[in-house]
Design a protein around this nucleic acid. Sequence first.
DNA 1: ACTAACTCTCAGGTTTCTTTCAGACAAAAC
DNA 2: GTTTTGTCTGAAAGAAACCTGAGAGTTAGT
Lengths: 229, 229
Amino acid sequence: MTKTRVLIVDDEPNIRDLLATSLRFAGFDIQTAANGTSAVAAVTASEPDIILLDVMLPDMNGFSVTKKLRSAGIQAPILFLTARDEVEDKITGLTVGGDDYLTKPFSLDEVVARIQAILRRTKYSDAEPAVIDAGPVVINQDAHEVSVEGTLVDLSPTEYKLLRFLVMNADRVLTKAQILDHVWEYDFNGDMGIVESYVSYLRKKIDPISSRSLIQTKRGVGYIYKKND
Amino acid sequence: MTKTRVLIVDDEPNIRDLLATSLRFAGFDIQTAANGTSAVAAVTASEPDIILLDVMLPDMNGFSVTKKLRSAGIQAPILFLTARDEVEDKITGLTVGGDDYLTKPFSLDEVVARIQAILRRTKYSDAEPAVIDAGPVVINQDAHEVSVEGTLVDLSPTEYKLLRFLVMNADRVLTKAQILDHVWEYDFNGDMGIVESYVSYLRKKIDPISSRSLIQTKRGVGYIYKKND
DNA sequence: ACTAACTCTCAGGTTTCTTTCAGACAAAAC
DNA sequence: GTTTTGTCTGAAAGAAACCTGAGAGTTAGT
């Protein structure tokens, strides 16, 4: 079983590196391109399984790139990256054929989740399953539903992302910095107190249901979700 | 079980790509042609199960193409694509047998639905069933009728398409962008507020009948229709 | 030609979520 | 036992997302 190949196309080096590092760590085989021309070249040279494509590139826009790729017979699904203010008008037709889009600034965990969702939808075999079963907590990513010991709990978007990150890294301590870097958008510049707040919110919702404390504090280090007791 | 083969004939590359991408994702085996001549060639080379044919082609009109195909012994049903203003006069006489027509601009969901309807009518074995039974909501696509817990509800065309799309993707969250891309015509360029409006209309019609809230809002994500509670 | 139905936009109102902050609390260090 | 450090949580402001009614414009039906 070979790794899933991802091509990242973005002209901002910071974003490119951020994505590359994060996705490499998530187990993907990464290639990058800084503009449309080299993207097309890279794709035809070694066909990736999925493409992350910034909609605004210096030489051509994402749609031209898409067109070039499709007419070259490339069927790989595309996750478009776009600024929030250019969403409304330019997005039409983007979610067709398994494709999806994500607005900048995004969170790294969200990128991985979206990639997995696309791979799942396009019937790619080695994608993560839609349902994460981690002991008392079960997360259905298709329905965006979370249940604790069988009981559905209603979570806000950020609570959901935080719990998903904790659960996907079950039995491993995560520092507040790690959580902040993966769950919050990359341009967030508040302090880590917000992680404490959200852990508190989460516990208030899920602890009363469970017989044990699901999210444990490792004082001086971070937090951990334990699958088994 | 082999895939249903669809031949797309249209001279506009954008439409061709949009259809190809969408139908490929819907599980069809796609071939394309940009004009009448190559369409005839493609059909005789590998007989498709159904043909999507633009009525106005650069080299010959849909009528000539149809004639050529039929006289070559090709029986595959045809779904004609036509601009809204060239409809009534040019189409009459064309839709004999299992044929049908669709006016541009169309919605992607509608194309798939029409193809399925034709396959059903021509007694094609692996077509989707006409009746979608999804818990409280039952949609009869032949009769264009919707019932909620046994009670018939009267829906406008757009309401119908929206509900059908939600129901066909039951138990999966759909983003407003996805809904817009699949339910609305491909040239629509308003904003996603219209999805909210139509969800509101739908709820006003179907919620009073049902014992539970059928279309749920997943804040920050989209909407979901749940089969079971 | 008239009427009814439908589509789409918009803005006000409402709900829910995010973020910050300060004080309470708990654990470790001295 | 007291201090120090780190964590928890409630309150509150502000922002974001969503809902819905009203109305303009369009289309379809009689």
